[in-house]
Design a protein around this nucleic acid. Structure first.
Length: 442
DNA sequence: TCTGGGGTCCTAGGACCC
DNA sequence: TCTGGGGTCCTAGGACCC
């Protein structure tokens, strides 16, 4: 019989921020999205204050002050690094691990002798090695394991681990889960289900399959089977080949000036191309898009989008930037105040295995391009992102740059931002230092 | 003043082929 | 009156995830 576990870090970003600030242990903590726009993570105490997920930060400033909420800009360098540490603990203990997201992993525990005991060990060791609290759900399918993990998180009596496969009354768990909370059922599907009188995961699992197929496509059908205990999804221990690379940002202020938009698109294209090279990939096409602010209906709205085919697969920044600027010419309409733009690289393939073409650049020229990009990446890796860049992407204080006023230090990934044990700091600071040294020793 | 960023998958429809 | 059938590939748009 197949058996899956889902490990989910509790309030992951908020837990990361607390790690080096032990004085925040029982305090409400929230983490904001890029641009300090809205709430994307909350500690348990913040949830208890009624601060909803995705709450616009400016509407809650008063409540933050009133209740002494610790507010952080998002710090992805920190979260990414801690995520890697959590995943490596899992790799040490479990036979087959799929890092599903920054804070979740699926484990295939089919054939493991004592799966529940293993899950308890995992939870204890992740906590001891990283300081991140996690919940783990066990079940016969991935979709059910997600449900089990939700329950493990919610019910303190379970101490963070719940085995749905050994539950005497699994239907009760499905009955207590709203259909919209099932993995893969979003807002639209939940509305359709509700219109048919389906409220709970149990109701959904009992719908006629042909209705589900027709209304929710094969995706819905698969979810239904998984809820009934028929495993359709396996654990992918090797990550699938990437299909696209995206870089987009909301601007710190609305942007009308095309010149500023060109700078932004240039910077996004350059950043996306860096990611491409870091993974040894090349792109054959790209898309540029521009957006006016959705939430301000009084302003004239425009969504621009343009696709540009590159002459051949490439990861050479100047060529991709030039193509992106041609795309912007098509996606830009004057007279609008833009809030966001982005660049998507498409048609990805490994740079090493590429098909040669009659239209390719001469090998000497390709070598020259590769060498130039190698220097660019090395300098930026050593001295910080953006140290070496195309002249058009301009200085680091432009109106379109995002706001990020409350970012915590990159404690674990930047030598200049390590926590310090020093004069005038209290014992909490000492604890920080010990934690840091422990992490560095690892 | 002020509402994120980065992905994947499915479907329908059109272009094109023999 | 009356103009096939079967297939692939690409793209745009929608839905969903964290």
């Amino acid at each position: 019989m197949p058996l899956f576990a889902l490990m989910d870090c509790n309030n992951f970003y908020a837990s990361c921020e607390r790690l080096f600030r032990p004085e925040l242990k029982a305090k409400p903590v929230v983490v904001l999205s890029n641009n300090d726009g809205c709430v994307i993570a909350r500690s348990g105490e913040a949830k208890a204050l009624g601060i909803p997920m995705c709450a616009p930060a400016y509407q809650w400033e008063h409540a933050f002050r009133q209740h002494g909420v610790a507010v952080f800009s998002s710090n992805y360098a920190l979260y990414g690094d801690l995520s890697n540490r959590v995943m490596s603990v899992l790799e040490d203990l479990a036979p087959c691990v799929e890092a599903y997201s920054i804070d979740e992993a699926f484990l295939d525990l089919s054939g493991v002798a004592e799966p529940l005991a293993l899950c308890r060990t995992i939870r204890e060791r992740v906590g001891r090695h990283t300081g991140i609290p996690v919940s783990i759900g066990l079940a016969r399918t991935k979709t059910l394991a997600k449900l089990a993990a939700r329950r493990a998180k919610k019910d303190p009596a379970l101490e963070g681990v719940f085995d749905l496969s050994a539950c005497p009354d699994p239907d009760a768990v499905l009955r207590e889960t709203e259909a919209g909370d099932v993995w893969g059922i979003g807002l639209r599907s939940a509305k359709r289900l509700l219109a048919r009188g389906v409220r709970t995961a149990l109701d959904f699992s009992r719908l006629p399959a042909d209705w589900v197929r027709k209304e929710l496509t094969v995706v819905g059908l698969q979810i239904q089977l998984e809820l009934k205990g028929v495993s359709c999804l396996s654990v992918a221990s090797a990550p699938a080949a990437r299909r696209s690379v995206l870089c987009s940002r909301s601007f710190g202020q609305l942007v009308e000036d095309k010149e500023h938009l060109r700078e932004a698109v240039c910077a996004f294209a350059a950043r996306a191309t860096e990611k491409l090279r870091a993974e040894g990939l090349e792109a054959r096409a790209l898309q540029v898009f521009t957006l006016t602010p959705r939430h301000r209906e009084a302003l004239p709205q425009h969504q621009g989008q343009a696709t540009v085919t590159l002459p051949g697969p490439t990861n050479f920044t100047p060529d991709i930037v030039a193509a992106a600027l041609r795309g912007l010419d098509l996606a830009f309409r004057p007279g609008f105040a833009y809030q966001k733009a982005g660049v998507v690289l498409l048609g990805l393939a490994a740079a090493s295995g590429r098909q040669h073409s009659l239209l390719d650049l001469p090998p000497e020229e390709r070598r020259r391009q590769r060498a130039l990009m190698h220097v660019l990446d090395s300098v930026n890796h050593r001295h910080g992102r953006g140290t070496l860049r195309l002249a058009i992407s301009s200085a680091p204080d432009r109106p379109w740059h995002m706001r990020q006023h409350r970012r915590s230090p990159r404690y674990t990934t930047n030598w200049d931002e390590l926590p310090r044990i020093g004069a005038g700091r209290n014992s909490a600071a000492l604890a920080c230092g010990q934690r840091a040294r422990h992490l560095l020793d690892e």
